[in-house]
């Protein structure tokens, strides 16, 4: 009776289990590699740099409102998308075009991108394409390149439809929200807003429960 049933512990299972345990022990004893890396100066520098590769949507909004002349926004989406909506003053360089070369063999967009005066900020719908543009340019050793964290999705979520902070929110959160409401009015109204609007509360009532983006919902 018992013989008909397969044995639970077969040789190959013992072997497999042993392999897994060895792999696991390896992970524990091979010296905590994340810590080792942290000590590595070069890695640390990379780490620092990676934190500084992005601008938040709030920072971009502030720069746009204050009319920062050094800001150079680059929209890496397709021309059709750019046509439908873009941030004020943005230049459209579709990601596919980024490394196009002209007849002379130079990068077509070299003048705009390879310079050290303006601050180049890429944006796309999300983060992916903008960050790719950023990493391509970084590899080419272009200076002053960044991308807008959260992209246009983040832009809509934070600037166009800011979420009211909770009742218990800190003063900073409340201030940020007020700034966003001001920015919202600026970008939607398209009109001139006195700089005070950026910090002072405005008459614009928050649209009740602004629609949040579902984000990666069901991103399974």
């Amino acid at each position: 009776m018992e013989d008909n049933k397969p044995r639970i512990i077969k040789k190959r299972y013992i072997f497999m289990a042993a392999l897994m345990i060895i792999a696991g022990v390896g992970l524990v004893v091979i010296p905590d590699f994340d810590k080792m890396k942290e000590a590595h100066a070069e890695e640390m520098l990379l780490q620092i740099m990676s934190d500084e590769k992005v601008f938040s949507t709030d920072e971009i909004a502030e720069m746009l409102i204050s009319g920062d002349p050094l800001l150079q926004l680059i929209d890496v989406r397709t021309p059709e998308e750019f046509e439908k909506f873009s941030l004020p003053g943005a230049i459209n360089i579709p990601l596919a075009d980024l490394l196009t070369k002209d007849e002379t063999g130079h990068y077509k967009w070299n003048d705009a991108l390879n310079q050290d005066v303006k601050t180049t900020v890429f944006y796309s719908n999300g983060d992916i394409y903008a960050s790719r543009a950023w990493s391509l340019c970084t590899r080419l050793k272009f200076k002053n390149v960044y991308f807008m964290n959260g992209g246009l999705n983040g832009w809509f979520e934070t600037i166009i439809q800011p979420k009211a902070p909770a009742v218990s929110a800190s003063v900073e959160e409340e201030k940020l929200y007020q700034f966003r409401l001001g920015a919202r009015q600026y970008f939607l109204g398209g009109g001139v807003v006195e700089t005070a609007a950026a910090t002072a509360p405005t008459s614009a009532q928050p649209t009740k429960k602004a629609g949040k983006k579902a984000g990666g919902g069901g991103g399974c």
Partner: peptide, 13 residues
């Protein structure tokens, strides 16, 4: 992380 995965491996076996 390594310790967590190791414990998980033992648990799995």
């Amino acid at each position: 992380a390594g310790m967590f995965v190791f414990i998980l491996i033992l648990f799995a076996i």
